[in-house]
Design a protein around this nucleic acid. Structure first.
Lengths: 130, 130, 130, 130
DNA sequence: GTGGTCTAGACCACC
DNA sequence: GTGGTCTAGACCACA
């Protein structure tokens, strides 16, 4: 699991944390890995991990307890969900629709891909459970 | 018509040219604005326009005729469509689906937004015709 | 027969004239095509053809008789041969040798290609005679 | 070590890097000088060095690690060798042969020059070792 | 420290 | 007129 080139690494790191909060892997008031741990686990400079946690803290998604580390905020999942939904419907979807127009891609084609995706992830989820 | 902050200006300029090729405004072997024209028309430094055309030329979307200017390549529209479709189905759509999963957004909700978007742009197109 | 992009068109035009002098197609004191003829025959701006003839005249390879056109100079072939040989042994060959070193290409391999080339052009020459 | 006039400086800079990769001075995943270092070491503006690295990156010969600098790509040497060999046998050699024909230069004469060149560079290599 | 972008202005060869 | 290159200097985000 590596990083994309077209987005700041620290933002990608923050996104991954947020993802894990969203899908329930990390619960409210649960401690998340220390800056150092997280940095080495991803082969990244410590300053970069600091910046990632900083940005999450700034958004009220995690909070710091001095000497103990960072913890998931009470309403973290809700905050993330809210801001992501806004980004999704405000930015991502309109751009996707614009491309569909330009590229002559029908909504039914997208629906079909969604079905495929759903089936695949469903499968994946089941495998994970075993 | 100005520029977004989260992408290099020269890339946005290139994208606009590509968009105009895709939707048929610019046809194969048609001359596109000179570097300087395009630069001043967008209130940008000439070097920035140079970089935009450079990137398009590198992708085989436009070509240069010495002393005459840049022209749309024969298969430009196809090239663009192909690379964009790949990006769409390979990158954009999977990410959209991933967000839908994380955010509990159903495909029917997306379909509805598409209907709204279609109606709106339909309207727009009709207005343009008047 | 079109033009390469990495050399000025007028120089390529001049080279073609020189080639035809070298291989005996154009003889001393023979008239060469008018600037206009040459320009339209190659689909090129007249000024460009003017520049090509200018550069040849500057090198003493052709001369102008007012109202009559351009003619091949007396010692044109010799001049061309001399300057080309210098360029060949001074510039082209050393660079070729340098690339051979870097690319691990042996002289015997080049010899083989020469044999192929000779056979092919021999054939070509015979066909031309028929 | 300065620059030739008949080729863009940034391309000559790129060529030098490529040469050093070809002859093994720069190995895969090795860091190359920073843009600014390379620029000042050659007495050139930083933007020119940027352009040189840009062109190498576009060809997949070097890659960027954010904040760290440029590194030699895994298969860089092969890529360079392949594209140069193609240029050599496709473009350079045929042109050399054409000139040999026009100028009545025999292959044995070229072979002799190669022997001289080989002896000279051999000598050079030995000197370098001392 | 790294590269990336952008501006302003200049000079050039070419068509 | 066209694009191509180069310089000088600036600001920025990123690691």
């Amino acid at each position: 699991m590596s990083f994309s080139n077209d987005k700041a690494i620290y933002l990608q790191m923050a996104d991954r944390i947020a993802d894990r909060i969203l899908n329930g892997e990390l619960l409210a008031d649960q401690r998340i890995p220390s800056v150092r741990e997280y940095a080495v686990s991803l082969g990244v400079n410590a300053n970069t991990a600091v910046k990632a946690y900083d940005s999450l803290a700034q958004d009220g998604i995690i909070y710091n307890r001095r000497g103990l580390g960072y913890f998931v905020a009470e309403n973290a999942a809700d905050r993330i969900r809210q801001s992501r939904r806004k980004a999704f419907f405000h930015d991502a979807l309109p751009e996707v629709f614009r491309q569909m127009r330009l590229l002559d891609i029908s909504i039914t084609e997208v629906d079909k891909h969604w079905a495929d995706y759903s089936a695949a992830t469903e499968q994946q989820t089941n495998n994970d459970k075993l």
